[in-house]
Write a protein that binds this DNA or RNA. Structure first.
Lengths: 344, 344
DNA sequence: GTGAAAGCGCTAACAT
DNA sequence: ATGTTAGCGCTTTCAC
């Protein structure tokens, strides 16, 4: 019954009549150890059901081999892609992952950060909560020079790399597309403008309008939480407008889709009466009818790159500033929702 | 510059001219310590920027305060809900979470399990990979009496609780509904039948048919990976059938939705020509047109309950058998996709 | 109410 | 190529 006693390197050493140090070395394939000895050690370890004690090892090495991730929510299509990408890279590199969600609350984010700090993660990946405006809770990481990387919803901090897409350009592209389809009166549904992603998209939207010599009326901006429910509400808002817009750019596909649905229920035809564009290329953009024009924006890739950047930084344990700002490509995907049907 | 040196209880003890033991006790609010002393310790800890060293603590306590989760994929709508639920409960209980995905591969699942074991998780939550047929990789947990709980895609193992919905009943309900709407020739699109979820759903489907005195033709079963692409393929398959079914039950909403879309492209009207039913009440079921009849099945709740069950088991550290099989409620949600329009 | 001391399991510097 | 030794930071039994 191997049940109760944990096997340690001492047990292996004793059985083999060698020293624990040799066992330790043998187990990690130290070059100075005789091949035969290694074999003996490995065999005995297996026989006894040995498993290395990470804590003892971490305690000695002062590394945890653990990477922390803080995200606003785990259950969004985009974010779970990101996490999947992170998990892949991190796992292959032999690190563990501790994941927590801020649930879009700045307070919870502070707690999460402190938990991560106390758990001594070797590095931290963060996408900010919807309303996070302070960043002091990340100070401890910076002071201790624990690599800290922001992705998607980012903030510029000393020595912290960021992984983003060019939200300005993406919004500019998609807005320009709507304008080229003949829209004269665009409406924008988005999130908290103090978050880089929404602010940049808004600015790109405005710039595209300017470039088409159109002025923007603040009546044509709606700030929401971008949930499906918000989409439905937004539709009702649009329906109630006297001077209805002829094109809508929503900062997120899911919200766009549910908005479209509600509009259709109220006999507004898309794209005949209103063109529509979303953001993210969520699977839903291919299911909603008409299929939604959107920005493709690879969550999985963003996760992979974020994790890889962090791991690179951990491997070359240099103090020097290697802050980078990585911009991932995006792509405009044009579908039926934004194509003017048969001009007369 | 507090940068390089980690503060330990010894530093606090020295500053305060007391013993490390007292500091240790004070920090964890030990009853035998004087209130004032505790206060002094807490203040000094804060001042010095102390953070407890989990490894040293774990090493002593032989607990990791960490719970492992192995899931097939992180990036599905259902699974990210589950994870969100797990994270919530686990976090509130002061545990950490290590998450890994098997990517539906039995081999990767074996590796994941071994990583979890070596990381000495206090407990493990598992939802099995699509094609996992062996369970030996979980033996070490059982032998060491590390609580192991399966959810959703489960297997019955000695001393392992399971958290599921009644897939048989749910499938029976939804199939009965289709039959009551007048279907005579049902088709079923599902996943690997050796997985409990798909097997049970299939059996429920068959039972409902039997109860309506209908026999089942194996031509009317399609085993797929339930991806959107599989849905499109399935549609083409259906279109090519000579004797087309009048009702389709798909074991997953996303696959159902993309199947519907392809059928519509090929001028098959839903629900006029074919009724449709899915499974999961994914957001997509409310976006696809017509809205999809489905089984509501709360991932978040399943996550919460799974985690809570595990934590309960950890808290009462009894060896006794407290294996339970928890069945979570489900609900049939009837939408337009399965409602016979105007009978003549 | 507080302190002394041993030990959790591993590793690495320093021997040999 | 292998062994000796000390110590990572914390907890807890036993003492006072």
């Amino acid at each position: 019954m191997t049940k109760n006693k944990e096997i340690t390197i001492y047990d292996i050493a004793q059985k083999l009549n060698i020293s624990p140090a040799t066992v330790s070395r043998g187990l990690k394939d130290h070059p100075a150890i005789n091949g035969k000895t290694k074999k003996k050690i490995a065999d005995m370890a297996k026989e006894l059901g040995y498993r290395s004690n990470t804590f003892a090892s971490n305690l000695r090495n002062k590394r945890t081999n653990t990477i922390g991730v803080i995200v606003p929510r785990l259950n969004s299509s985009f974010m779970s892609d990101v996490i999947a990408g992170i998990e892949k890279v991190v796992n292959e590199a032999g690190y563990n992952l501790i994941i927590s969600q801020s649930l879009e609350s700045a307070e919870k984010e502070v707690i999460n950060a402190s938990t991560m700090f106390n758990n001594r993660v070797d590095g931290l990946l963060v996408s900010l909560a919807y309303n996070a405006d302070k960043t002091e809770h990340f100070e401890p990481f910076i002071r201790k020079e624990i690599p800290l990387i922001f992705f998607d919803r980012v903030v510029e901090l000393q020595n912290c790399s960021t992984i983003v897409i060019d939200n300005f350009k993406a919004a500019f592209d998609i807005t320009s597309h709507l304008l080229e389809q003949g829209c004269k009166n665009l409406f924008h549904i988005t999130g908290n403008l103090s978050r880089n992603v929404y602010r940049d998209r808004f600015n790109g939207f405005i710039q595209a309008m300017k470039d088409h010599s159109l002025s923007f009326d603040s009546e044509n901006l709606l700030i929401t939480d971008l949930s499906p429910e918000a989409g439905t509400q937004a539709a009702l808002h649009l329906i109630a407008m006297k001077n209805k817009p002829d094109g809508i750019f929503v900062a997120n596909d899911l919200c766009a889709a549910s908005c479209m649905l509600q509009l259709k229920k109220n006999h507004i035809r898309i794209p005949d009466d209103m063109l529509f564009a979303g953001f993210n290329n969520d699977i839903i953009s291919k299911i909603v009818e008409p299929n939604l024009t959107t920005i493709d924006y690879k969550g999985f890739e963003m996760g992979e790159i974020s994790a890889q950047t962090l791991i690179n930084q951990l491997n070359k344990n240099q103090t020097q500033n290697l802050t980078q700002s990585i911009v991932i490509r995006h792509e405009l995907i044009i579908r039926q929702s934004s194509q003017r049907t048969k001009l007369i």
